[in-house]
Design a protein around this nucleic acid. Structure first.
Lengths: 247, 247
DNA sequence: CGGGGGGTTGATCTCCTTCAATCAACGTGG
DNA sequence: CCACGTTGATTGAAGGAGATCAACCCCCCG
């Protein structure tokens, strides 16, 4: 985090996620309340933010970077159940421990609120609670969308679906047009993609190669992806919803 | 619905889901408001409650019976993304169409509210919105739990997991002790189970037979299941969480 | 230079799907 | 009352998509 970033982060009105996070609906006085109880925390790539089952004394928003929510079985099988991007919220009111591991996959900055004051706040100010309900409903839709991917799609379709999701987000954030070639960096390793998709990392690697050989995507290095024709990728993903690329 | 059921359903204070549904936190005056805008609808087994994409002019709670939330791809592959039991809520404020098909799998009675008045109500009375947030968070947890099942469990583990979920619900509803043998009727056909689990109906049938032959479950007819030893079934489900049978 | 993390590719195996036959239960109409 | 069709379920045989095991590459860093 540069000195300038640090400066930006002290004032809510300059916050990069001001218009999308839990606080987006707040009136100025509500924002003052939130501002008085907030603090920032930084995590390095690879660092665990919260361990599954551990006590969690805060909730908060991802300001920058990417984190994952994962579940692990006793024998080591793991499934990613959420991908946390800037403006996404971590933690739930009314529960003091996370049932998932939260791991930073890139460097992450979070805007945190201590849980107790936050919980009283959402019972008293409706705008935060309303926004939180909206965000939770969106998360639920995303989770259900993902259940279709996990349960019914082939490995190739899974990869295509994941690439589309990342492309969509990126283009929404960067303000691309949604037309013409799209290109972005994969924030996830092959293994993390496998954990998201319910596959092995070998299968992920093979299917990415296959999509490359088919000309649906092209790679520079291992991580930078270019999509010459988004419609072709949507075809591969078997996305019935036209999806509305920019949604 | 018998005449007595009908009578019971006219008054919120006698409602069987009074203490678990969206209305469970309401003060008497809030309940009066809700009561003034509610109406009941019945659906027969097999009937579609809402078609994916269609306009939805109401939201509401399942009072009795079982319904499913499913997604279907163009080529016919379908994935169940939710199982709706008594007290579960359908529809979301702020959106006028469902992205999923809602289908009654048994006869279903719903307590409905017209969407417009309900939406103004939740912006004005905090208790309904708070309860809705809680329920949505629970749904999200359930969806994420299910992502682990879909992504990482074997067919046998999937079947065991589904049986456990149904057993848990049933025993919570019926007020069983959670100890000793548990027995219940499957509300779902083999095909519906397959759609829930991301399997084929043949695999479902085979794995149920396998669990029966292994003595983990026993069947009377095709639908009535008895579980002599719940711990054994949890073992088969590879449920890391002790699960706390009664949660 | 060694070592380790991340990635690719190959060979083999296996679990689940696919296709198909059969069965039991049930209703319906002649 | 029985032939017939339908629906839900079971079981078998064969094939395939993805897992598993393993070798190897690239690049960065100490």
């Amino acid at each position: 985090m540069t000195a300038q970033d640090q400066k930006l982060l002290t004032d809510c009105s300059d916050c990069p996620i001001r218009h999308r996070a839990v606080c987006s609906r707040c009136e100025p006085n509500e924002l003052d309340l939130l501002e008085s109880m907030k603090y920032y925390r930084s995590f390095e790539a690879g660092q665990t933010v919260v361990w599954s089952g551990d006590r969690m004394d805060f909730v908060g928003s991802v300001v920058s970077g990417v984190a994952t929510l994962t579940q692990t079985m006793e024998d080591g099988r793991t499934q990613m159940v959420g991908l946390l991007l800037p403006s996404d919220f971590i933690g739930r009111p009314g529960r003091d421990s996370s049932p998932y591991d939260v791991v930073a996959v890139t460097d992450v900055v979070m805007c945190c609120f201590r849980r107790a004051p936050f919980e009283t706040l959402i019972t008293e100010t409706p705008h935060v609670a309303q926004r939180l309900l909206q965000m939770t409903l969106d998360d639920l839709d995303a989770a259900r969308e993902w259940m279709l991917v996990l349960g019914r799609k082939t490995a190739r379709e899974k990869i295509a679906s994941l690439l589309l999701i990342i492309a969509r987000r990126d283009s929404a954030l960067q303000g691309g047009t949604g037309l013409g070639p799209v290109s972005f960096d994969l924030p996830l390793t092959r293994e993390a993609m496998a954990d998201y998709l319910g596959l092995t990392l070998e299968t992920v690697s093979r299917q990415i190669s296959a999509l490359r050989k088919a000309g649906v995507i092209s790679l520079e290095g291992k991580r930078h992806v270019t999509i010459p024709d988004i419609a072709a990728l949507m075809e591969e993903a078997a996305d019935d919803a036209d999806g509305g690329f920019l949604v």
